[in-house]
Amino acid sequence: MSPMRRTDELDELLGAFALDAVDDEERRDVERYLATNARARAEVQDHREVATLLAFSGGAAPDGLWDRIVGSLDAIAPAPGPELAKVLPMAPARRRRGRVAAYAGGAVAAAAVVVLGVVAVQRGNELDDLRGEIASTTVQEGFGQAMADPASAKFVLQSPDGSVSAQAAVEPNGIGFLAAGDLAALPDDRTYQLWGISGDTVISLGVLGSRPEVLTFTVAGPLDALAITEEVAGGVPVSEQSPALVGQLT
């Protein structure tokens, strides 16, 4: 924040900021101010909601635009689709579980398909804007609480050489928290991806982005281990990569 910009000056900028009517330096100053001031955040949100009403136009989007968007989705993530978040069939999973499950090793054959009902709550998290910063504060707090909860399932993930580690905790309600700030930043066309391993089943828990910090995920079933792989941006339905980190339930 500019040392010359007082709180009252920042408050005066909130209306213009909400309408994207400030210059870059002012925008950065206001964003820093908002990160520490809930009242100011609420005011900006109020202004934006009013602007929403001004902006409304009842017209329809042009024909063909949705098809172009869908085409772009396919280009970005070749094979995610709705299936990514579902348990892979047992036989294909065994055939294609690849090196993730192999490294996790020791996973006993599943007695039955475990329906995890996984929700990837956060993908491609670029914590480079205000919403991300605010959300990360909340997630940080949640991570601390989950780690302190004796009922949570805890995982310590480590790289093969032990030089990089991450921690995860899954609360009894299925909400999981992963602290993976030690992972090296990847190029923008790469991403980390989180995997849950239950018996012989490996399932994607979500794409973590290229610079993960603390993230949330949700599961609806028990996990034996977690693993993180490096993948192409957008993630993959089945990984063939060796995990960057892996950890069993402690």
Binding site: G59, A120, R123
Partner: peptide, 20 residues
Amino acid sequence: ARYRQEALAEAYRRHAGAVF
């Protein structure tokens, strides 16, 4: 977030006109 394109389609159906 669960890669449900149908959900994105619903968001588009509701809001694409205003966005455009």
